[in-house]
Amino acid sequence: MEKPKLATTSLAGCFGCHMSFLDIDERILKLVELVQFDKSPIDDIKEFTGQCLVGLVEGGCANEENVHVLQKFRKNCDILISVGDCAINGGIPAMRNDLSIKECFEEAYLNGPSVYNPSGVLPDDKELPLLLDKVYPCHEVVKIDYHLPGCPPSADTLWEALVALLTNKPLELPYELIKYD
């Protein structure tokens, strides 16, 4: 029987959740017996090769590209999991949510203490994804099946959750593995 596929991505996140995922250490050898990695920064596959059983999403939606990737993940993954606080509540990027886009741009490209921009030009290339009005948690954009909180969720949390899902067991995390920091 073919192994089920696993896809991962980082939207408006810091890749810390992926780093934590790598902290499963030698258990990754057991993981590759259970799954085949599909689209993911871990194997650098850029596009989906087929329907995946599980998708792990790190980070919230800060720009239109994040939304497109998230929608693709929803379409191509049977089970979609929000991994980490940014995916669940926007996290650090969401600290801009009480400022306007204009204020964010002015701080980043004109007024910030380390900015050198004598021409005063703001980035405006059509290749650049447009920023959203605020940073959205993933479950406010598409349906999310499970949430694994933490900044980042510990390797044990990710491991327990994945193994439970891949071996058809109920996902019941013990007290120590649900943490918001």
């Binding site: 929000s82 606080d85 669940i88 509540n89 996290g91 650090i92 600290m95 009480d98 948690p137 479950h139 999310i144 499970y146 949430h147 694994l148 909180p149 900044c151 007290y175 649900i178 943490k179 918001y180 920091d181």
Partner: peptide, 28 residues
């Protein structure tokens, strides 16, 4: 509110966070 547990000094000793843990909340 704006509850950023990841950099809050109270995290781990916070009663609101602890209540969410006790009730098994993964996301509101």
């Amino acid at each position: 509110g704006n509850h950023y547990c990841m950099f809050c000094e109270k995290s781990g000793n916070c009663e609101l966070q602890a209540m969410a843990y006790r009730l098994g909340i993964c996301a509101p």
